[in-house]
Design a protein around this nucleic acid. Structure first.
Lengths: 204, 204
DNA sequence: GTCTATAGCTGGATAGAC
DNA sequence: GTCTATCCAGCTATAGAC
């Protein structure tokens, strides 16, 4: 029951907020410490330098993103009791709310976008933790649904890619609209229609 | 036949290169002018300030991106003589080589990615010039193919989205792999397979 | 764990000579 | 159209007192 937010956490939260609103190099240590309410020098007690601060932010994302997909051992049970359409619609809602509607995660994914050509680790997280891990998970799902005879016998990897890649683009677009405070209902409909269209095309 | 590269063009080219390798705010006027071989003050003869430099880069992209799609008046002729698979495979190659394999355009699209939350104009270009205009074009293509009776009668907009959104994600991924100097052949296969899978699913 | 003080550098931008 | 010279605000980071 430790409700106290430590200075270190405060620094991280404000850094995430500021980096996500502009960019890593555009935000100064001064900007961060001013908002936290400490002197610049105090930040260096908690973090070695500016890069270590960013690195900690990336670690938070990697740790959290691992929690999006349900563990594989309970997956079989879920899949047997759920139609592909139900499962995919539900999973998409989970993914979206985790990445886009959770303030911390949506901010860090903006940081990942803006730093992808500056920081190799950002690229690695996008390619591996966001793209590859996700595709692999969906691949397992489709393989299982093929086994169960619910969907047509395409290579699971192909199905996973065809299903998940549009989702990535829509999420990208969603993040921009959200950042601008614009209406996202059209895009949410699109996400829903995508699942419907896709399932309709591959079900037996 | 004016082959001479003016200083202004040199500045633009080097700025594009440097901004794309890190980010707008991480590159200084000094960095740019050093590489151009002029003094910092000389840059201000050609550009009012750093932001105007970025703005000019965005203008180049907008001007060039308009040339990717063939004009609508000759489109009908092309579509009647080409199968959907041929047309989409060819169009995808065009799009990819224009955006990813042309050094200038691929660099500017990296800049657009990294500046999307810093510069409203970058967001506008991504949403309108890159996403919306493209989708609209493909929509016209599918509408025509439906008229011609080559493909199934789905709403053209839905088909356009389902076809084009995976392409956007693959292009994003392609750019990261390319930036890292990694092998892209697997992804190119994926692009090809996507067209094949998609056409197979919607043809009559 | 936070402060004051400061080092030492780099940033964008301008004035005015040539 | 490019230069020299300069301004000064801003930056990261450290030393050492409390």
């Amino acid at each position: 029951m430790e409700n106290k937010i430590s200075t270190k956490e405060k620094i991280l939260n404000i850094a995430i907020d500021l980096f996500s609103k502009s960019s890593f190099s555009a935000v100064s240590i001064r900007d961060i410490t001013r908002e936290v309410g400490i002197k610049e020098s105090s930040l260096y007690y908690h973090f070695k330098n500016k890069d270590e601060l960013l690195d900690s932010i990336f670690s938070i994302f990697q740790q959290e993103i691992g929690k999006v997909c349900p563990p594989l051992d309970i997956l079989d049970q879920i899949l047997e009791q759920t139609t592909p359409e139900q499962f995919l619609q539900q999973g998409l809602q989970n993914f979206k709310s985790y990445i886009c509607d959770n303030p911390k995660m949506s901010r860090i994914s903006r940081i990942l976008s803006t730093e992808q050509f500056n920081h190799p680790r950002a690229r690695s997280i996008i390619l591996n933790d966001l793209y590859e891990d996700n595709i692999k998970f969906i691949e397992v799902v489709f393989a299982k649904y093929i086994d169960l005879g619910y969907i047509q016998e395409y290579p699971p990897r192909l199905l996973a890619v065809e299903y998940q890649y549009p989702v990535f683009s829509m999420i990208t677009q969603y993040q921009i609209l959200q950042f601008e405070g614009k209406d996202t209902s059209e895009l949410e409909e699109l996400l829903h229609d995508h699942v419907e269209f896709f399932v309709h095309k591959i079900k037996k």
